[in-house]
Amino acid sequence: MPTSQLPRALFAMDPAHLSELFPPRLMHRLQSLTVVDAALVVRDFGDPAIAGALAEAELLLTGWGCPHVDSAVLDRAPHLRAVLHSGGSVRGWLADAVWERGLTVSSAVRANALPVAEYALAAILFAGKGVFGLRERFRAEQAPPPADALARIGNLGRRVGIIGASQVGRRVLELLAPFEFEIALYDPYVDDATAAALGAVALPLDRLLATSDIVSLHAPDTPETQRMLDERLLGLMPDGAVFINTARGALVDPDALTKELVSGRISAILDVTEPEPLPGRSPLYDLPNVFLTPHLAGSLGNELERLGRTVVDELQRLVAGEPLLHTVNHAHLVNSA
């Protein structure tokens, strides 16, 4: 297609991410589909220097660090017809006006869900084998654990409870399918038939927590899910159960979780906490039954290219007049991350 017929696009994100999202081979492909200046990355839509580019833009290619797109921005972008987001959630970046004016919105949320799900899968498998606790014991005693400790480990038939059939939760369910787990799912928006199709048995939250050996949290961070796991619910988990959180720390009562972990009754694998990071005085840094990582489950390093590739693939469909695969339904945002 001649350059004169290509849509004009504008990057809006933290420029630090641009080269990781769109390395040279991907940038070349992107620039064969749209007219875009890789040296112009918007951090402030009010900057007079970008007024001309914004006025001509038909597409916004956004990512982490994108300034808020609201009615005032849209007023200065009369030709804008689509926003292709290279991050996960678009909440916080895009105002309702984007959908109200009929713009198409696409997100790489499914691509970003994959590394989180991979982390969760690894955590579940290691938890079932008792890897984290036995590592601490092995390091302290410098001797193989006794037979009675090994008798309690293993993943055959272990009950794994998944909280939230989000994009990440569904990816985790897909990844768990080849293993011989019993899988339970709690999601207030998922019925029994849908849960079964996802490879799980739908359970109320209380029962899931009370009967699962491993619980992995994948609910979205919304006003309704804030502190959804409180002292009562955490107290339902069986002695020796493992709690995994790759969602958001705000979904769990931090004092209640700390109390349970300090007691040693349950264990946890936490990629996210409340607050984040934890203060230096937090006992969670030193507890042998807690495995902490610094919010690294999501796309990082070379995984960012997958997000950029999702955007370029969507752009190719848009230019070809084909339906996009990853459109964001505005009505679903209230119940999603």
Rank of each mutant, 00 (worst) to 15 (best):
V168R: 01
R110E: 13
R152D: 04
P146E: 14
L156Y: 14
E136C: 01
I163W: 04
V160E: 03
E136H: 12
L125E: 09
G164S: 13
P178R: 00
F179H: 11
V131P: 01
L114K: 10
F179Y: 15
L134V: 04
R101Y: 12
A120S: 15
D96H: 06
A127W: 05
A127Q: 02
A147E: 13
A147S: 13
L121W: 02
G128V: 10
G92S: 14
L103K: 12
G133E: 11
K129Y: 05
F138R: 11
R137W: 10
A122D: 07
S166K: 08
A147G: 04
F126A: 15
A177T: 11
G161M: 02
L125S: 10
K129Q: 14
R159C: 10
V90Q: 02
S89Y: 10
R158W: 04
R170W: 05
I162M: 03
V131M: 09
G161W: 04
P145Q: 05
V131Q: 05
E141M: 05
F132V: 00
L94T: 09
G128Y: 11
A143K: 13
F179N: 03
N155Y: 10
G169A: 08
E100T: 14
N155T: 15
I162N: 01
R139W: 10
G128L: 08
A113G: 08
R170S: 05
E141D: 10
A117S: 13
I153S: 01
